[in-house]
C-alpha cells in the first residue's frame, strides 16, 4: 500500500501544481519584495564622513577611491559597476557614514553613472 502511494507521489505533485497558481514572479511587471537587510545600492551620508579612508583600504573590489590633499580637503569616489556589494565598507566605517540600502542597482547607459562622487569637500565648502 505504502509502495503504491509512493509510486504516485510525482503524479500527485503534478496535479497539485496544475491546480495551484504558478510560482513565477513576473519581475519587471510585478514588484519584487526585497528583505530589509538586502545589500543593494550604497548610500552615503557626507556629514558623518571624516575622510579616514578605512572603507577604501578594506574594499575588496577597489570600488571606492579617495583623493586626499589634506585632512579636510578630499574627494571620495564610488564606482558602482566595480562594486561587489559585499558590505565590507559598511563594516569598516566607524562613523556609520556609508551603508547599503535595499534598492537594486540596475544596468546603466549613462557614463555619468559609472562614477559617483560621494563627497567633495572643496565643493561643499564653497
Amino acid at each position: 500500500m505504502d509502495k503504491i502511494k509512493k509510486r504516485f507521489t510525482l503524479l500527485n505533485a503534478v496535479v497539485e501544481a496544475m491546480i495551484k497558481q504558478p510560482e513565477t514572479i513576473k519581475y519587471p511587471f510585478a514588484a519584487m519584495e526585497l528583505p530589509e537587510g538586502f545589500r543593494g545600492a550604497i548610500v552615503f551620508d557626507p556629514d558623518k564622513c571624516s575622510g579616514c579612508g578605512l572603507c577604501v583600504r578594506d574594499c575588496p573590489a577597489e570600488a571606492l577611491h579617495i583623493n586626499k590633499k589634506s585632512r579636510e580637503e578630499y574627494t571620495l569616489l564610488h564606482y558602482p559597476a566595480r562594486c561587489a556589494y559585499c558590505g565590507q565598507c559598511e563594516d569598516s566605517c566607524r562613523h556609520g557614514a556609508i551603508s547599503h540600502s535595499n534598492k537594486l542597482v540596475g544596468a546603466t547607459t549613462h557614463k555619468d553613472d559609472w562614477v559617483l562622487v560621494f563627497k567633495d569637500s572643496k565643493a561643499s565648502q564653497e
Binding site: L34, P35, G37, F38, R39, A84, Y85, C86, G87, Q88, D91, H100
Partner: peptide, 15 residues
C-alpha cells in the same frame, strides 16, 4: 539566506 544575510548567493556572512 537572503532574509538573514542580505545576499542570495554571496552571503558575506563571515568576518
Amino acid at each position: 539566506m537572503e532574509e538573514v544575510s542580505g545576499g542570495r548567493i554571496s552571503h558575506a556572512a563571515n568576518q
